[in-house]
């Protein structure tokens, strides 16, 4: 499925968050959205998912305006993996992943749904945990369950909101490897908000750098993760090295005073 985001504007009362964001995504492509806090990354993902409605602009799935689709129709196209999700009364892992089948059945699941879920649990190596309570799992395991639930939706686009932020380095790599593998085995597109620039440079086909609600730079890691861009967008001086064909970004220090948004707003 081709995804096109056209001239998206979004504002909270008193604050413009997105000021005309345009980007596109094709099948089997991983796009990482990076940018400082408050640059509009999560809002962009939520607008694509339809959780928030843009003031103007459109999101198109294979040319169809997302605003014309019902919640269930969107749920069949997009699997959304939130940053974290807590359950008030904990369901089992199996039942949690089964929720991903909900857009495809109405009141009760069929044997086919049970088959699909148990296949996904095995693929994600969650079968030993299948009957455990979701709330009792570790952060990394919960993240895998949420990805499994999104896969159970059989989506054509996977949206991930900072999937690695709560994980240790081993689980960070694990989650990224899983996503990378899925993109090619299932021919889906991935749009991911991520803070870790090194993970982004290693796994992204394209990086979109947001700054003050606008696309500041977009392209390969080499095009976007430059010292000049990082200084401008994050206000951080960084060393960028090429190691085994992947860029790694080492932050050195904050550029003094000038870019402090509080001072800027106060007109200092």
């Amino acid at each position: 499925m081709k995804v096109a985001v056209e001239e998206l504007f979004y504002s909270y009362p008193g604050k413009d968050v997105l000021k005309g964001v345009t980007l596109g995504l094709v099948e089997t492509e991983i796009i990482c959205i990076v940018g400082p806090n408050g640059s509009g990354k999560s809002t962009l993902v939520k607008c694509v998912e339809g959780l928030q409605h843009p003031r103007s602009g459109r999101v198109l799935f294979d040319g169809v305006d997302a605003a014309k689709l019902s919640r269930v129709e969107i749920a069949r196209l997009i699997g959304y993996v939130p940053q974290s999700s807590s359950q008030l009364f904990s369901a089992s892992v199996f039942d949690t992943v089964m929720m991903g089948r909900k857009p495809h059945y109405s009141w009760r699941c069929s044997d086919e749904d049970v088959d699909i879920v148990s296949d996904i649990l095995q693929m994600m190596e969650l079968d030993d945990l299948a009957m455990d309570d979701y709330n009792n799992l570790s952060g990394g395991q919960q993240q895998r369950v949420l990805i499994a639930r999104a896969l159970a939706q059989e989506p054509q686009l996977l949206l991930l909101d900072e999937p690695t932020s709560a994980l240790d380095i081993s689980h960070q790599l694990e989650v990224m490897e899983i996503v990378h593998e899925l993109v090619h085995s299932r021919k889906i597109g991935v749009m991911m908000v991520i803070h870790d620039l090194n993970l982004a440079s290693r796994y992204a086909d394209r990086i979109v750098m947001l700054h003050n609600g606008l696309v500041y730079a977009a392209g390969t890691a080499e095009d976007t993760l430059t010292e000049a861009n990082i200084e401008e967008v994050y206000g951080v001086e960084a060393d960028i090295h090429c190691h085994n064909g992947t860029l790694s970004v080492i932050p050195v220090r904050r550029v003094s005073g000038m870019r402090n948004p509080v001072l800027q707003a106060a007109g200092v």
């Binding site: 959780l51 749920a75 959304y80 999700s85 909900k102 857009p103």
Partner: peptide
């Protein structure tokens, strides 16, 4: 009749919305 939807609302509002629940 609505109890199946309640299962999904248990995971939080935005999760439930993204799974197609009103």
């Amino acid at each position: 009749w609505k109890s199946g939807d309640l299962n999904i609302m248990n995971t939080g509002d935005s999760s439930a919305k993204s799974l197609g629940i009103n």
